[in-house]
Design a protein around this nucleic acid. Sequence first.
DNA 1: CACTTACGAAAGTCTATGCTTACAATAGCC
DNA 2: GGCTATTGTAAGCATAGACTTTCGTAAGTG
Lengths: 109, 109
Amino acid sequence: MQATLHAIAEPRRREILGLVRHREMTAGSIASHFDVTRPAISQHLRVLHGAGLVSERRQGTRRIYRARPEGLLELRKFLDEFWDDRLDALKREVEAEQENGDAGEGPRR
Amino acid sequence: MQATLHAIAEPRRREILGLVRHREMTAGSIASHFDVTRPAISQHLRVLHGAGLVSERRQGTRRIYRARPEGLLELRKFLDEFWDDRLDALKREVEAEQENGDAGEGPRR
DNA sequence: CACTTACGAAAGTCTATGCTTACAATAGCC
DNA sequence: GGCTATTGTAAGCATAGACTTTCGTAAGTG
């Protein structure tokens, strides 16, 4: 998950993901969408591939990339758990507050 | 969302989030869980707070922090959309493949 | 008021990283 | 075999960022 977060924390890499989200693209055509040099994009693609966020397929000398949404599964799970746990905690707090119902307490803070 | 990703891409900051996920904590008690200096944690807390991932409350000279799961909403949405879109695309591809049913094509790749 | 406690802010250091300019590798074409 | 096209790799550079030490600040306490 560290690799996933590190990969998508970089704006350019998220843009790349957006490009290959629906269709396959060669490294070259991906690079042509940006104003940085091709090797820079190549390095981003390596990071994305290393994190399992894109698949790489070779066709002759071309390399064809495509988004791999499964690569985001672990992160999604992390966020969902965090979210649920926190909401549960809020719920427990509210309930505890109601149980020791010392009226006239007034709004805290 | 850039701020959110930047914030949680750092492992130490995720640990901090884990600490204050269920309970409030002062900056000092948070820092005591790590082997780096207190100012380092203070800087992490500033990043987390700037990204809206923790709330900050002052009580005398103490600063009390707590996780703010709402701060993850936008990122969750981004991931969900990405996920759904991509699965939809896969579905469309499979259907298209079935429609032009040239049998004997065999498994690709 | 002096003293302590609990912090953040500022400045400097060191590493990580995104970028560039070479260069190498591999596949097709004549 | 040469030639071109498409791409990754290597090395170097400049900026970002995580950390440290030092200092400043605000709230209590005697």
